[in-house]
């Protein structure tokens, strides 16, 4: 049965779009049929991170308004045949997104895909509300930083009250994904630890994505990090997170750079 997963955070810049692309690609790499939807009307970026920016013709609002058919707006990834993108509109008014329209689109996508990943815009306004509205599960992207943790708590409160599932008296399945984590700084007491964040948010952990240059390198070339450099620490962390989403029990670790003999000999780089 199809699962609708919202990738959300409240705060901007914590890695929602990067995580949506990486989780979506990793799911597709495991044979799941995946569609990723960009809900950030006016500030779309999922197309860019996925390297599909020049292939956008129709968008989410065109489909909501009946200007285009869903089939015309969906863009198939060139590398992963199981991965599809439904881009946001870059020009139209975000008020054009309606709950009825999104409901109809998600119902149709449920018949065609195993996973529907909704990339939420930052904030708690209409776009963010609609991105989570029909979710079965949520990934709350959190940085080890006070403002991000506070906003995650707010979003958790909304997932528990403003979603269709919550209104039916059911629970949206919630997962914390910690991004930009620096184990060195955490161990020196300069950064909130994983335990601190989980205790404060009282929500289970899906994965820990280490701070890494590989994330920027992947987005530079328009490739999800799990595809661009599958052996890099963030790619392995995202792949593990997806394994857990699929129900595998995978030990929770923070992947580190696999070092060759010479770099071991010369000592480690600053974390």
């Amino acid at each position: 049965m199809a699962k609708v997963l919202v990738v959300t955070s409240g705060k901007g810049g914590v890695g929602k779009t990067t995580s949506t692309a990486a989780l979506g690609a990793a799911l597709a790499q495991m044979g799941q049929r995946v569609v990723v939807i960009d809900f950030d009307v006016g500030l779309r970026n999922l197309d860019l991170v996925l390297g599909a920016e020049r292939r956008v013709v129709f968008d989410l609002i065109n489909v909501v308004q009946g200007v285009a058919k869903l089939q015309q707006a969906l863009i198939r990834d060139k590398r992963l045949e199981n991965l599809w993108l439904l881009p946001a509109s870059q020009t139209r008014d975000k008020d054009a997104l309606t709950e009825e329209g999104i409901s109809r689109i998600i119902a149709e996508l449920r018949t065609r895909f195993d996973w529907i990943l909704c990339d939420s815009p930052a904030g708690i306004e209409r776009g963010a509300m609609l991105a989570m509205r029909f979710a079965d599960a949520a990934v709350i992207v959190t940085n080890p930083e006070v403002s991000s943790v506070r906003d995650s708590d707010r979003i958790i409160g909304m997932l528990d009250s403003k979603t269709v599932k919550a209104e039916r008296g059911e629970m949206v399945e919630k997962h914390i994904l910690i991004t930009r984590y620096d184990p060195g700084r955490a161990s020196r007491g300069e950064m909130l630890s994983i335990d601190d964040i989980l205790e404060i948010l009282a929500t289970p952990l899906l994965g820990i994505i280490p701070e890494s240059q590989d994330v920027l390198k992947a987005s530079n070339v328009g490739s999800p990090v799990t595809l661009h450099n599958a052996d890099s620490p963030p790619a392995r962390a995202y792949t593990d997170a997806v394994g857990r989403l699929l129900g595998d029990s995978i030990e929770m670790t923070v992947p580190t750079e696999r070092k060759g003999f010479m770099s071991r000999l010369l000592g480690r780089k600053a974390a």
Binding site: V146, V149, R150, R188, G189, E190, L192, I200
Partner: peptide, 15 residues
């Protein structure tokens, strides 16, 4: 001084 414990305490009270 480690600043993470301060962050943790401030968040717990605020939230």
């Amino acid at each position: 001084k480690a600043t993470a414990p301060i962050a943790r305490e401030r968040l717990q009270i605020l939230l």
